[in-house]
Design a protein around this nucleic acid. Sequence first.
DNA 1: TGCATCCATGTCCGATTCGACATATACAGA
DNA 2: TCTGTATATGTCGAATCGGACATGGATGCA
Lengths: 104, 104
Amino acid sequence: MRERRAERLEALGWRTGDAAAFLGLSAEEAAYVEVKVRLAEGLRRRRAALELTQTALAEAVGSSQSRVAKMERADATVSLDLLIRALLALGATRHDLARLLRGR
Amino acid sequence: MRERRAERLEALGWRTGDAAAFLGLSAEEAAYVEVKVRLAEGLRRRRAALELTQTALAEAVGSSQSRVAKMERADATVSLDLLIRALLALGATRHDLARLLRGR
DNA sequence: TGCATCCATGTCCGATTCGACATATACAGA
DNA sequence: TCTGTATATGTCGAATCGGACATGGATGCA
């Protein structure tokens, strides 16, 4: 039987599979990152819906423009805690958070 | 018309309303606490379902028994970040997290 | 081409959160 | 009652995360 693509690539020294496998993330780390990215996207959409700049949002939640930018980029230096606090400050409910985690 | 109960109590100097109002929490703070409590309960249930002690869970996630106890009590010194990491370490998916936030 | 606005990224250092430990409480079985 | 096991709580030094600031790039508009 003809060799599958993944096996052929691996024979050449390539890592195959999804982004997590490529980056060497555990399933847990991958799940964590996905949760963070979803909250980050949710924050950006919510801010856009309110037609706020990052600076305006920063003022509203007592933070800084640079940190808001990092939140929305799901930067590694931003905790889920801060992301969730920011979303709640924009009026998100726990149901909204649930929707962000479930959705797509 | 007969005075409503809330008004009567307030006339006597009592704060009325829900726990948040009583404790002087903003809507945002109240929402944050509720999210934390839900995740905390979810963690405890998941640990119980796996029949792990807090000590065993602590080892599994690289923490300590005392911190696990605080997580499950929704202690103020525990971040949502840590709670979510612990849940994911126990195999929860983002859908499970969504369910915890939505549920009841 | 200048100027303004918006967002991204790196760094600093003070604040918060972490794991660890000590210790306390609660409850079970011998 | 004594012993062991599970959980709760307070504290500490170390690690991580936070806001602030500086700066750079991108876009739009005069």
